[in-house]
């Protein structure tokens, strides 16, 4: 369905190429939800923009392939990619307020997408819009279509964004932090809706998030990114039970659990997230890694068998010696 192979994204500044994302590969199948997890600056959002063909200069794809249903997007012109956007692939963003037009009614914004992408008549679009709104759980669609975005709460606006995203029956939805701006109770509603739609319509979904709880509850597969590299891949269960990369393990340990023992302090990862503007040699995680050895600084670990680490945690190398 969607396959990203060795994707690299760079930024040109003063004729120097700065790599931001390097060697990222993953696959998403129909009806499946893949979560990409990472902290700020890990490159997860620009990876999703690259798939949509929305990178703007000075950002560009410097290597790799993005294959969607057998077509390599990196070889298409922006005009050709536009034919896919909104029809075969669509996107849900974090800020539902800024992505809706404040001076147009909700109904006209959804109808616009339908007419543009499916070529229906006005009346057909109206009926279709009603159906979509009730599909995403907006009660009273006929009334609500006449309202403006400011009449809607954050959760309702995000439902409208989802209605627009699924309007043309896309095969892939990319959701970039769709619930970060929402309350936990609304977050649960929106994510359940997305995963339900995904299963019902057989759509694939790429969920970009920083919240490990969301990953555990909704995703089928996870890719963990750090400093522009893919560090680990697996199912939520395998990653939670047996994290192979020290970063993943550290991330899981630093999340407080509702039933955790309060007398123990949390175990944070020391240091600060990798700054994309500074080049780090070897493994990007080495300055913060508890398993650090000199080789980590010199040589970048290859991504092999679901993890990129010289001293993966699931194998007992000579860990005892150090």
């Amino acid at each position: 369905m969607l396959e990203v192979k060795n994707l690299a994204i760079s930024l040109t500044s003063k004729n120097v190429e700065v790599p931001l994302v390097d060697d990222v590969s993953f696959k998403v199948k129909n009806g499946e939800m893949l979560a990409i997890v990472g902290e700020s600056g890990s490159g997860k959002s620009i990876t999703s923009l690259a798939i949509m063909g929305l990178l703007k200069s000075p950002l560009f794809v410097s290597a790799g392939e993005i294959i969607f249903n057998g077509i390599d997007f990196t070889k298409l012109s922006p005009e050709e990619i536009r034919q896919f956007r909104g029809k075969k692939i669509s996107m849900v963003f974090q800020e539902p307020m800024t992505s809706l037009n404040p001076v147009k009614t909700i109904g006209s914004q959804i109808e616009e997408t339908i007419i543009q992408n499916l070529g229906l008549t006005k009346q057909q679009a109206k009926n279709c819009c009603k159906e979509l709104l009730s599909d995403v759980g907006v009660a009273d669609p006929e009334q609500r279509m006449r309202l403006y975005p400011h009449h809607f709460s954050g959760g309702m606006r995000q439902r409208v964004m989802i209605a627009i995203a699924i309007a043309a029956n896309p095969e892939l939805i990319i959701a970039d932090e769709p619930t970060t701006a929402l309350d936990v109770t609304i977050q649960a509603q929106i994510l359940s809706l997305l995963s339900e739609l995904c299963k019902k319509r057989g759509m694939a979904m790429l969920l970009i998030t920083h919240n490990l709880g969301i990953v555990a509850r909704y995703a089928d597969k996870v890719s963990v990114m750090y400093g522009g590299n893919l560090v680990e891949q697996g199912t939520p269960r395998s990653i939670y039970r047996n994290a192979k990369h020290p970063y993943t393990a550290g991330l899981i340990r630093s999340v407080p659990k509702l039933d955790s023992d309060k007398s123990m302090p949390l175990e944070p990862i020391s240091g600060e997230p990798a700054d994309p503007s500074k080049l780090i040699s070897g493994c990007k995680f080495h300055p913060r890694c508890p398993e650090y050895r000199p080789i980590c600084e010199k040589q970048r670990p290859e991504f092999k068998d679901e993890v990129a680490c010289h001293f993966r945690l699931d194998k007992d190398f000579e860990r005892q010696i150090s």
Partner: peptide
Amino acid sequence: ALIDAVPSIDPD
């Protein structure tokens, strides 16, 4: 309800 809405990081 508030507590139920918080997803746990343990998938099981």
